[in-house]
Write a protein that binds this DNA or RNA. Structure first.
Length: 800
RNA sequence: GCGGGUAUGGCGGAAUUGGCAGACGCGCUAGAUUCAGGUUCUAGUGGGGGCAACUUCGUGGAGGUUCAAGUCCUCUUACCCGCACCA
């Protein structure tokens, strides 16, 4: 058969659409299977081949599941709110709505050309009123339950994007969107109390099937640590200075304290501090530094002693100095630490620089040279002396602290509450009203959606205020509570809001009464398999698990964890081995590949190029191998003869069906395709195949190259669509050969191979080996020390 | 610094989990077909030695366990990813 992809690909895509072939039924007697891929952000650049790889994995799984008789939901949508679109709109003068529509159209046409079996009737777009109405609804529910709060705090602020960023969006001190240095700024911020769900997010990981590194990254991100809070008395004040420590058992080694430059105790006691000018100077210096600079100066410790305030070690009663230093962060723990220079590297460096006493409380190191962080016997510690086990000494100290009312056990998380507002236009309006009389008032549920006004100018304000603040008809409103004049919140939600629950909307995308019908949620949840990029493991994944768990606690969804299984694909690198990017000019457009090679070749190649979870460079000449494979596969049609196949080939077919079936489940697409290539070579060696056997192979290949396989299926007289035909079964008995070739080693080196019946008894196997003409001279005249026969694998004869 | 990972031909990568290293594909070499080719076909292709059957070395490096190690153990080097003054 001539492989004319330009003719057959549009033909079958049209047919699938006409037949509604990939429809997911809400009420079906078939078992359900929900496969989810991360919906794209529709950027102006269009899709690149990385998107194709990201979707091809579960595309194959979804197609296989349908053929196995499952009712499959494999949806797609668009995560369309966000800064790149808005920035592009500002630059070009187009409205973000128009830009978004145009980009979605482009993405849709690209996806359709590849022949993905998405169920297109359930597309969601996070920027549509019908969708963000429910994003706002969930926000209001969180508000109602006390999970939304407003605080004025130091926030990460990007001076270039003019926007407040969450902790997650400012990793490494750089803006996640434009990569400028971020600065700390004091601002009124809306927070979602995600820390309240820290333990649930952690515990939930035990019941899900995520890749180990995905789990690990989430555990690290949540960053739970247990220790103790301890209150230190200040000689000159009535108030206490509260610290957090993971090693309360080293309290006898505390020789000074350090607080963050922003710690409120300074402002509160300016009159008692003798060197307030020096402190102010230092604090001003710190404020000027970006977070990035601050974390760069790891080696060189700076700080100023607070003159006029003296702390008292609560267990030894000794007076100790207090310093301010920027190595203590206001954002973690209590913003104050007890310093144990003998057993903490940072405290050690600080103590050395400022000439502070270093008291050893754990034996095992040499504290004249460096801090010792290891385990050992407790010394200089009164009632803890002689303890050698860290766990016991900590427990004993916490017990003591509780008895005396000095402190108590405590837990801390690295994860911080989620800063949830952005001073930009292209996002969901936050449904809150500020009333001079009533304060903060939520927009009533029946007024949702609170629509984003259509305006011509949406540049951010110079002072960092939202573009919406300039729109009087939006801002001015009546208080829903008292009816008086009030003003709307003008900030919008961050990009991560819409994507935090989109998998729920796919279940019932056109519902106007609720975000999704409960019966349908019961049927479809949880997502059986979610695949996406590693870059979303600590943001989108954590956020959406948080929202889902919140909805679960509300009783709105039937399961506690949204995703039963999570895997990740590796990047496609440019032909130069570098990460694909517009600026490097190494981006490959899937449309170009489809034009020249066809969708089936593209699909096969992105899965064949290497391990699915690892990064691999794009290599066009390597793709030719896939092209040849599909062409030669198409030509099998001309080899069809009625005569039956040899037992050897029949066995090879059963082995291949088994291998492909199992490999798909483990995302080992490269070896699945390799085994089909190997089988193809065998068939060509034989020179013929029967029609029945070919229909098996066509079905086996169809998840990878569905257009070609539909065409062959039709030519072979198959019933209905190949995409919905039964997945081929293998006969285990036929995957086992009657004889095997076994290698014969002498002293561990292969010297011959012998043909043996399967599961040949060891004695017979060794006898056969010893009778082999190549082996005889090698053992003649020597003493046989040991004979090993591993059935069906190897024979090793040890001689001296 | 902490956490996770990787290292196999000229290249992408296989290896049933301790059992013939290099499947499959690219590339390369030689030959055939073709006016031509980003065509197709045949044979070969880890390094060294040999006309050859064969032989020897070989999975980042150094040791070790074992009849047998890419795979297990100890040490070590390089690179990648995530977090990072987290108390």
């Amino acid at each position: 058969m001539k492989y004319d992809f330009k003719q057959i690909e549009p033909k079958w895509q049209k047919k699938w659409e006409e037949d509604n072939a990939f429809c997911a039924e809400d009420h079906s007697s078939k078992p359900k299977y929900y496969t989810l891929v991360e919906f794209p952000y529709p950027s102006g650049a269009g899709m690149h081949v990385g998107h194709i790889k990201a979707y091809s994995g579960l595309e194959v799984v979804s197609r296989k599941r349908r053929m196995q008789g499952y009712n499959v939901l494999f949806p797609i949508g668009f995560d369309a709110y966000g800064l790149p679109t808005e920035n592009y709109a500002i630059k070009t003068g187009m409205h973000p709505r128009a830009v978004t529509d145009k980009n979605i159209e482009k993405f849709t046409s690209q996806l359709k050309r590849v022949g993905f079996s998405f169920y297109w009737s359930r597309v969601v777009d996070t920027t549509e009123e019908d969708y963000y109405r429910w994003t706002q609804w969930i926000f209001l529910k969180m508000f109602e339950k006390g999970l939304v709060f407003r605080d004025t705090a130091l926030v990460n602020y990007c001076p270039s994007c003019k926007v407040v960023l969450s902790n997650e969006d400012s990793q490494g001190g750089k803006c996640d969107i434009c990569h400028s240095d971020i600065v700390q700024k004091s601002k009124a911020v809306w927070y979602l109390r995600i820390t309240e769900y820290a333990d649930k997010l952690l515990e939930g990981l035990e019941e899900v099937d995520y890749l180990p590194n995905v789990k690990q990254q989430q555990v690290n991100w949540i960053g739970k640590s247990t220790g103790a809070f301890v209150n230190f008395s200040i000689k000159e004040l009535d108030e206490k200075l509260r610290i957090y420590t993971t090693r309360p058992d080293t309290l006898f080694g505390v020789t000074f304290m350090v607080i963050a430059p922003e710690h409120p105790i300074i402002e509160a006691n300016r009159d008692k501090i003798k060197n307030i000018d020096a402190l102010d100077a230092y604090r001003e210096e710190c404020a000027k530094k970006t977070e990035f600079e601050r974390t760069q100066l790891v080696k060189d410790k700076t700080g100023v002693r607070i003159e006029g305030l003296t702390a008292i070690n609560p267990v030894s009663g000794k007076e100790i100095p207090i310093y301010i230093s920027d190595y203590v962060m206001m954002g973690y723990g209590t913003g104050a630490i007890m310093a144990v220079p003998a057993h903490d590297e940072r405290d050690y460096a600080f103590a050395k620089k400022f000439g502070i006493d270093i008291v050893e409380v754990i034996k095992g190191g040499d504290i004249s040279k460096e801090a010792y962080a290891g385990d050992g016997e407790m010394v200089n510690s009164d009632f803890l002396n002689g303890y050698t086990n860290k766990k016991d000494s900590i427990a004993r100290m916490i017990e003591y602290l509780s008895e005396k009312g000095i402190g108590e056990m405590g837990v801390q998380y690295k994860m911080k509450d989620w800063a949830f507002n952005r001073q930009r236009y292209w996002g969901e309006p936050i449904p809150i009203v500020h009333c001079p009389a009533c304060g903060i008032v939520p927009v009533p549920y029946n007024e949702l959606p609170l629509k984003l006004p259509t305006v011509q100018h949406f540049e951010p304000g110079e002072g960092g205020e939202s573009p919406l603040a300039k729109i009087d008809e939006f801002v001015n409103c009546k208080c829903p509570k008292c009816g008086g004049a009030a003003k709307r919140e003008t900030d919008t939600m961050p990009q991560w809001a819409g994507s935090s629950w989109y998998f729920l909307r796919y279940i019932d995308p056109h519902n106007t009464e609720v975000f999704a019908d409960r019966e349908k949620l019961n049927y479809w949840l949880p997502v059986d398999w979610y695949n996406g990029g590693m870059e979303h493991v600590t943001r989108h994944m954590i956020y959406s698990r948080f929202w889902h768990k919140f909805l679960y606690d509300l009783g709105e969804v039937p399961v506690a964890e949204p995703y039963a299984k999570r895997t990740a694909q590796g990047l496609i690198l440019g032909p130069d081995g570098e990460k694909m990017s517009k600026s490097k000019g190494n981006v490959v457009d899937p449309n170009d590949v489809v034009d020249v090679f066809g969708a089936d070749v593209l699909r096969t190649y992105v899965l064949f190029m290497g391990d699915y979870g690892s990064a691999a460079p794009w290599n066009e000449s390597s793709m030719k191998g896939c092209k040849r494979f599909l062409e030669r596969f198409a030509d099998l049609f001309d080899l069809v003869k009625g005569e039956g196949v040899t037992p050897k080939l029949e066995s090879a077919i059963h082995k291949t069906v088994k291998k492909v079936s199992l490999d798909i489940e483990e995302l080992k697409f490269n070896t699945a395709i390799a085994s089909m290539m190997g089988l193809l070579n065998e068939i060509y060696d034989v020179g013929s195949i029967t029609k029945d056997e070919l229909t098996v192979l066509v079905r086996l290949l169809s998840p990878f190259a569905p257009h070609l396989c539909e065409e062959l299926w039709e030519m072979l007289g198959g019933e209905g669509l190949c995409s919905l035909a039964a997945w081929p079964e293998w006969d285990e008995a036929k995957t086992v050969d009657s004889t095997v070739e076994v290698a014969v080693q002498i002293n561990g080196k292969v010297r011959a191979t012998v043909e043996l019946p399967v599961n040949c008894p060891a004695a017979d196997a060794i006898a056969t080996a010893k009778a082999n003409e190549k082996i005889i001279p090698l053992i003649e005249g020597k003493t046989v020390v040991k004979e090993i026969s591993i059935p069906n694998k190897i024979i090793n004869i040890v001689v001296k």
